[in-house]
Design a protein around this nucleic acid. Structure first.
Length: 431
DNA sequence: TCTGGGGTCCTAGGACCC
DNA sequence: TCTGGGGTCCTAGGACCC
């Protein structure tokens, strides 16, 4: 058996942990720049407010709803996540973190345990220790555990834990689950399934295996196997394996037209990518920069493009990655476009322990210097706060409140952000 | 005025090899 | 009148996830 434990309305619950006055009030959390609703409390979902609704439309359409909105506070969410995972690891031998708010639990060898009672107690422990409400689904496969966890969340009668152990339970649960709500079946595939008369998870599981394989390839077949109780999707070690691509991208609060501004943003994203590489002890061969105009503004000329630069000797130093990203940017920048979004991707990632040097161009002395600079950046910024020391190009100019030019790094609109309760003493004021 | 960000896996098809 | 067969590797793009 395998368990899937999932935090309830994770971002909203993080905000509520330190705002108990919001316990039964409608709460939403917004994306970067306070753009869209990315998390909704139970009360907000009950009001029929869809996910990804732009914030300004929320305000227009639900003016007196009493909804409390927060800007996203990833520092808080990351810390709350690690607290929840820590409690799980104290109580379960084999935990695989699957996302910021979910983990799979390997329950093999627990045949003698009353999983229902054990699961309920685990959920209580997590909530008692961290303030985070969680739900648990237990079933023979990960896809079924996901289905079970949705039942645990939806119906209070389960007391946070739904165990799907018998064939009867499996059939009933799948009959009550829409195909589109199954892990691995998205909107596209659901639409195609509907064409074939497949509406529920049970309809899909009842189809012939060869038919599924022919129409929906190996991924569809795997989902089919999982729904029929055969555990074939493996996520073990997912949380410890180094990433194969790393992306940092942002939308801007307004729009940008100048190359010099874009260069500063691209430099920030590239610096962030190189930091992520160093954190997982990796190096990359390829750096890609991309820029996009505002696709919502059909009245403006549209343009999006990307370009890459590669290294003969892979690297993770801030200096080299920023330089490569901006060289790529220069080759795709076009005048007369209002840019809304940009980003940097690093790929061709390999281990930093065994770097293959280029025979003809590798300069050990220069490489060592660049590595020393990056290591110093990480030490200072780790101690004094992110972006305390940056490359000059990472700063861009903007107008301050008094109309004078001010330098910023990583400006994002977060008008409604809560304090970093768990990571900054200054978040609490005394008296 | 305002419309998110960061990943993975799979397949088809082209380039190239013998 | 006629134009092989069987591989590998790479990339772009589609689909999915949270």
């Amino acid at each position: 058996m395998v368990g899937l434990i999932d935090c309830d309305n994770f971002f909203c619950s993080c905000e509520r942990v330190f705002r108990p006055d919001l316990a039964h009030k409608p709460v939403v959390v917004l994306s970067n720049n306070d753009g869209c609703v990315v998390a909704r409390s139970r009360e907000v979902k009950a009001m029929g407010i869809p996910d990804c609704l732009p914030y300004y439309q929320l305000m227009e359409r639900y003016p007196n709803s009493g909804i409390v909105a927060f800007s996203s506070n990833y520092t808080l969410y990351a810390d709350m996540s690690s607290r929840v995972m820590a409690v799980l690891r104290e109580n379960v031998p084999d935990v695989t973190q699957y996302s910021i708010d979910e983990a799979f639990l390997d329950l093999n060898g627990m045949d003698h345990v009353d999983l229902k009672a054990w699961g309920e107690e685990l959920c209580r422990k997590v909530e008692r220790s961290t303030g985070m409400p969680v739900s648990l689904g237990i079933a023979p496969s990960r896809t079924l555990a996901k289905v079970a966890s949705k039942f645990a969340k939806k119906y209070p009668g389960y007391r946070k834990c739904c165990v799907m152990a018998t064939e009867e339970q499996r059939v009933k649960a799948l009959q009550l689950t829409a195909a589109v709500d199954v892990w691995g079946i998205g909107r596209r595939i659901a639409r195609r399934l509907e064409y074939y008369g497949v509406r529920t998870a049970y309809d899909f599981a009842q189809k012939n295996r060869g038919w599924v394989r022919g129409k929906f390839h190996v991924t569809g077949e795997r989902t089919w196997q999982e729904l029929n109780g055969d555990s074939v999707i493996d996520v073990d070690g997912l949380d410890t394996v180094a990433k194969q691509t790393i992306v940092t991208s942002r939308s801007f609060p307004g729009m940008l037209t100048e190359l010099s501004d874009l260069r500063s943003h691209i430099a920030n994203y590239a610096a962030r990518c190189s930091l992520k590489l160093r954190r997982q002890n990796s190096v990359c061969h390829i750096v890609t920069a991309f820029i996009q105009s505002n696709h919502f503004r059909e009245d403006l000329p549209q343009y999006s493009n990307s370009a890459y630069r590669s290294f003969l000797t892979p690297t993770n130093t801030t200096t080299e990655i920023v330089g490569a990203a901006n060289a790529a940017l220069d080759s795709i920048f076009r005048q007369g476009i209002s840019y809304k979004r940009a980003g940097v991707m690093v790929s061709g990632i390999t281990s930093g322990d065994a770097v293959q040097h280029d025979l003809f161009t590798y300069d050990p002395e220069r490489s060592e210097k660049l590595r020393t600079v990056s290591a110093a950046l990480d030490r200072v910024n780790g101690k004094m706060g992110a972006d305390m020391v940056v490359l000059g190009i990472q700063q861009y100019r903007d107008k301050g409140a008094d109309g004078k030019s001010v330098k910023f790094v990583n400006a994002i609109r977060r008008a409604l952000k809560s304090p970093d309760y768990t990571t900054r003493l200054g978040a609490f004021t005394v008296g």
